Computed example of a mutant assay.
Amino acid sequence: MIDCCSKAGVAMTDFTPFQSLLGGALIGLSAVLLMAFHGRIAGMTGILTGVIPPLSLDWRWRAAFLAGAVLAPLLYVAAGGQIAFSVPVPTLALVVGGFLVGIGVHFGAGCPSGHGICGMARLSPRSIVAVATFMVTAFATVFVIRHVVGG
């Protein structure tokens, strides 16, 4: 459960170690199974581009992977689980952020999931540099937003 709140003017996120561990294990398992059965890397951007026309020859497993990513949280909620979160930024900020991430994915030759989960596991130098860049940029962005801009 992600619950962003304010405590003394500082945005906070609840620490959920067990849910995070389980989620990370499931993501890792899906990445390993995809590599074992299809020889493919579980990067969401690469998977998504294979189902956008023109379709790649292996579009079926890509569509199934994406459907699972969308349907799994819905099934969790239908089974009685709760997913609580708030987004403390305007929709325009989300759109601009998504656009900037898309640019980074293009120039970084992959998305954070592909580089961070699969590339790092393979000790890919390109992925190690990409993840280090993501992290430094994320730290700097949070610092600027929370301490300079005051958001």
Rank of each mutant, 00 (worst) to 15 (best):
M120H: 09
F139E: 08
H147R: 14
G23Q: 03
L123R: 15
Y76V: 00
M120F: 09
P88M: 11
T133V: 13
A25K: 06
T91R: 14
V96N: 07
F143R: 06
P53Q: 08
V70W: 03
T13L: 14
L100Q: 03
T141N: 08
W61V: 03
A78E: 06
T49F: 05
G108L: 04
P90C: 10
A36I: 06
V89M: 15
G98F: 05
V142C: 06
G110T: 01
P73Y: 02
L33N: 05
G23K: 02
A93Y: 10
C111R: 00
G81F: 01
G102F: 04
S6A: 07
L33V: 08
P53R: 14
A11D: 04
F18V: 10
V77H: 02
C111S: 06
G102I: 02
L75E: 00
I103D: 02
G23M: 02
A93G: 07
M44R: 05
G150R: 13
D58E: 13
L55A: 09
G114H: 00
M1A: 10
A11M: 08
R60P: 02
P73T: 01
Q82T: 13
A130P: 01
P88E: 10
L57K: 14
A130E: 00
R60H: 06
A132L: 15
L74R: 00
T137N: 08
F37R: 12
I27R: 02
L21H: 01
A78K: 12
I2G: 12
S113K: 12
I2T: 12
F143P: 01
G28P: 03
